[in-house]
């Protein structure tokens, strides 16, 4: 029984660290959706670019790891800004399906770009200081320090996001835009700037998630954003796409689900992705607005 309890504690921490990463990525999805009603399928690839930026900032430009990470986050934010400006802004008034297809195209573009420029072979992300991998013993469970850092960073960033959204003027504008873009612009807010800010923030979150992800699973390759991106999308839908709290709760729920299914039913482990999709289907069938329903009045 002792072993069972240890395994459970171990798995709770495993879930928290995986769920935190999903939540960080899901927040980027949900912010963009909340404002533009656009599912940014390139988000997973922005996450991938973030890890490459961190990798090259440290290996090619010899920056110390903390500066390298900071640079990567800033550059990824800039990338999000450019993507919005080049690919999505010209289509803002086009039918929604056009923006969606553009997002998928952007995703392919970023993947192919990474294959051509960075190479298709996985790179080892062993550029962070070793203390991140130190093991902390809790009872007989062995938890890497990185797990605590991931959980800590995740919650810290959510506090920052909450502060931006509810205590600053730009956050107020973001919330306003998510309700009605033309009306917000009539109130004198610069809609373009605010949408750009949203992309920068979402992409920066993706970069943080990417760096933490690469430290946990130290392998960087051009297609690495696909699965986490898809999972985070599911997490965002579970929580209620467009809702920040929803993305956070959805991310952690998905993390727990994936780990605990494997923990309790090891023989199903090979199919754990299937469970994420089953949950997605069930949510879409019975509660399409997700756990946190966004109340929106029908515009007439």
């Amino acid at each position: 029984m002792d072993i069972g309890l240890n395994a459970l504690i171990q798995n709770i921490f495993n879930s928290l660290s995986l769920g935190g990463l999903y939540a960080l990525i899901a927040v980027g999805y949900t912010m963009v959706y909340g404002i533009l009603r656009l599912i940014n399928f390139a988000h997973g690839d922005i996450f991938m670019m973030g890890t490459y930026f961190a990798f090259y900032a440290i290996t090619a430009f010899f920056l110390p790891w903390y500066l390298g990470f900071l640079m990567a986050i800033l550059i990824t934010g800039l990338l999000g800004f450019s993507i919005e400006k080049i690919a999505y802004r010209p289509l803002r008034n086009a039918p929604r399906i056009s923006s969606l297809i553009t997002a998928i195209g952007m995703s392919f573009f970023l993947e192919s770009f990474a294959v051509v420029v960075f190479g298709g072979i996985p790179k080892s992300f062993n550029v962070y200081p070793k203390f991140f991998s130190d093991i902390i013993l809790i009872g007989q469970s062995r938890i890497p320090l990185l797990t605590f850092i991931t959980i800590g960073v995740t919650f810290f960033l959510f506090l920052v996001l909450w502060w931006i959204l509810y205590k600053t003027k730009i956050g107020l504008a973001m919330r306003a835009i998510s309700v009605d873009i033309p009306a917000t612009s009539l109130m004198g807010a610069n809609v373009n700037n605010i949408i750009s800010t949203t992309f920068v923030l979402g992409s920066a979150f993706a970069a943080v998630a990417g760096i933490l992800w690469a430290m946990k699973y130290p392998q960087v390759q051009p297609y690495m954003g696909f699965t986490p991106g898809l999972k985070a999308f599911i997490a965002a839908v579970i929580g209620g796409i467009g809702s920040i709290q929803g993305a956070i709760v959805g991310g952690f729920l998905l993390g727990f689900l994936e780990i605990m299914i494997v923990g309790f039913f090891p023989s199903l482990a090979g199919y754990r992705d299937v469970f994420a999709y089953i949950v997605l289907v069930v949510i879409l069938m019975f509660r399409p607005t997700g756990i946190f329903k966004i109340y929106s009045e029908q515009k007439v």
Binding site: I3, N14, K216, P266, S267, D273
Partner: peptide, 21 residues
């Protein structure tokens, strides 16, 4: 003791926790 995963998986903590028990 049999454990399973899928190509592209990056997190094996749950399977390993079970196997190592």
């Amino acid at each position: 003791y049999k454990e399973y995963y899928q190509s592209g998986d990056q997190d094996f903590s749950a399977q390993l926790t079970d196997a190592l028990s």
